[in-house]
C-alpha cells in the first residue's frame, strides 16, 4: 500500500481538492457581493460599483463599530499578552500535578462553550456595571485569548535552555535582567504570534460581544449581526470584506513570525 492503485489515488486527490475548494471559496463570496451596485445582494453582481464602501465609511454607526472593535481588540490583546506571557514563564517553573492543574485552568476558556462563558460574563457584568462598556468586552475577550498566548509563548519557551538562565545568574544578573536580556529576546516571536492570535480572536468574536454590547459600544461583528437580522444590505458585505482583509494581513504576519520560531500556526 505504499502507492495506492491509480483510480484510488486519483479519487483521493479529486476528493481532497473538492473539499479544499469547499473550505476556501465560499468565504470569498462576500467580496463580489460588496462591489454590487444594486441595493440588494445578488451574486454575481450584474453591475459593479464601490458605492457601498462609501456608504460604509459615511455611516457613523458602521464607523464607530469599526473603531470600537479596534479599541476592544487592542485592550484585550494587551491584557492577554501581559498575563499570558508571565503565566507561560511561571508554568515552566512548576512541575507535575500542579503544572497539569494550572495548565488545565489556563486552557479552560477554550473548552467551556462560548455561549456559557458569554451568559455568565453578561450576568456578572450587569451586576458590577461593566455591561455595555468597552472595558467589559475587552476583559471577556482577554479571557478567550489567554489560552492562545499561553500556548504560543509556552512553545517559544521550549527553545530557552535553563542553563542559559543559570549562566546569567552565575554571572550576577538579577531576575529582571535575566528576563530582559536572555528570556525575552528568545521568546519575542512567540509573544508576537500570541498577540496576533489574541487580536484576531477578539476582533472576530461575536457571542460575548452580542451579549455585552450597549447602544454606543457595538463592535463591528455586533453591528454585522444586527444588520443581518434587520436589513440585509450590501453594506454588510462591505463590513465582512473589511474583516476578511484584516484577517489576511494578520494571517500573513503570523506566518512570517511562526517561521521564525518554528511554532505551529493556528
Amino acid at each position: 500500500m505504499n502507492r495506492l492503485p491509480l483510480p484510488l489515488r486519483v479519487s483521493a486527490n479529486a476528493g481532497a481538492s473538492l473539499v479544499l475548494a469547499f473550505l476556501v471559496l465560499p468565504i470569498l463570496a462576500v467580496v463580489p457581493a460588496s462591489f454590487n451596485k444594486a441595493s440588494f445582494i445578488y451574486l454575481p453582481p450584474r453591475a459593479w460599483s464601490g458605492v457601498w464602501y462609501e456608504r460604509f465609511l459615511a455611516d457613523p454607526e458602521w464607523r464607530t463599530s469599526l473603531i470600537n472593535s479596534v479599541e476592544v481588540a487592542t485592550l484585550a490583546t494587551v491584557i492577554a499578552v501581559t498575563l499570558g506571557t508571565l503565566a507561560a514563564i511561571g508554568l515552566r517553573r512548576i512541575d507535575g500535578r500542579w503544572r497539569t492543574l494550572v495548565t488545565g485552568l489556563f486552557l479552560a476558556p477554550m473548552i467551556v462553550p462560548v455561549i456559557v462563558t458569554a451568559v455568565a460574563l453578561y450576568r456578572s457584568a450587569l451586576d458590577v456595571g461593566l455591561s455595555g462598556t468597552i472595558l467589559g468586552m475587552s476583559l471577556g475577550h482577554a479571557i478567550l485569548a489567554l489560552p492562545f498566548v499561553v500556548i504560543n509563548v509556552g512553545i517559544a519557551l521550549r527553545a530557552v535552555d535553563d542553563n542559559w538562565l543559570r549562566a546569567a545568574a552565575g554571572l550576577g544578573a538579577g531576575p529582571w535582567r535575566i528576563f530582559r536580556d536572555v528570556t525575552l529576546p528568545n521568546i519575542t516571536p512567540g509573544i508576537v504570534g500570541g498577540a496576533i492570535f489574541a487580536f484576531i480572536t477578539s476582533f472576530d468574536e461575536v457571542i460575548i460581544a452580542v451579549f455585552m454590547a450597549g447602544y454606543a459600544s457595538k463592535t463591528l461583528p455586533v453591528k454585522i449581526w444586527e444588520s443581518i437580522r434587520l436589513e440585509f444590505t450590501p453594506v454588510i458585505a462591505v463590513a465582512a470584506t473589511v474583516m476578511i482583509a484584516l484577517a489576511i494581513v494578520l494571517f500573513a504576519l503570523a506566518q512570517i513570525f511562526s517561521r521564525k520560531t518554528g511554532s505551529p500556526s493556528r
Binding site: I41, I200, F203, D204, I244, F251
Partner: peptide, 18 residues
Amino acid sequence: LFPFWISVLVRTFSWMLL
C-alpha cells in the same frame, strides 16, 4: 488553516448569500 482566521460570522454570512 486559512478558514480558521476568518470570522465565523463572516463565513456564515457568506453561506447566507450562497
